[in-house]
Amino acid sequence: MATSHAQKVGRWALAPSLAALTVWAFVPLAIAIYFAFLRYNLQSDNTGWFGLNNFYYFVNDPYFYKDLFNTVALVLSVLAITIVGGTGLAILLDQPFWGRGIVRVLMISPFFIMPTVSSLVWKNLLMHPVFGLFAAIQRFFGASHVLDWFGTVPLLSVIIIVSWQWLPYAALILLTALQSLDLEQKDASMMDGAGPVSFFRYIVLPHLSRPITVVILIETIFLLNVFAEIKVTSVGGFAGNLTYLVASQLNEATDIGEAAAGGLIAVVLANLVSIFLVRIVGKNLGT
């Protein structure tokens, strides 16, 4: 039990962080709400009450539904790829083989690459329709018509790049969880005659269910906010998401009011997800 002296000091020790985070959590939100109801474009002085018009214009933006769809499609497909692939990679890395440490380092590396670098490298060096490596491979196999990745399937290209970045994350977390699996359980199930499939189905998968949930929820937070991959590859018009739409309202249309309204819509969307995350992580807290 902590002493009352420690309690008192503890209050003061906690205060700066709480104050900083209170400011961070509430001030921007309050300002966003305030400006979402104003007519305010940086290029004109004409400001005034605008009611719900900012929301109306944002939702009726020709890109809105497309970008909303792209947001959801991006999150869901990257999640599917990283969870399935990550589970596979984690099981593979958990097997005994030569050079595990090195392979682990090779696999985890994409996670440390900054988004702008991975976007440009993939776009130019790999996916370029003329000089890219993928085009060369296609031509090597005799294709007369090579795939122009960012020209014809921009969303898929972005999904591939983002998946490449997040696959190591899922694999690393699931591997860590897998290594805490009790080996005796495996021995026991083997003795009972369980094959690798039923071992995976009845022992590994239940053991991984919680880490998988955590990975899904945390990845969702970050994937909803994918921005650099879209901006740097300049496919915002074809594969933009909500985050990109809000940023372009600011950078291109300089419409503060509408961008603030769009930002609030993004906040609502993110909160729907985060409610679940906080609950699940909270259950595990055990303080």
């Binding site: 921007p28 300002i31 985050t243 600011l250 930002g263 993004a266 969307l269 807290l285």
Partner: peptide, 26 residues
Amino acid sequence: TSDSLLWMLSTKMMPPAGALIPIYLI
């Protein structure tokens, strides 16, 4: 304390798109 911890975690959920305009203006 446990509520504080969860609340701190929830501040991380604030999407940057929502904070972009206020931060830009500040």
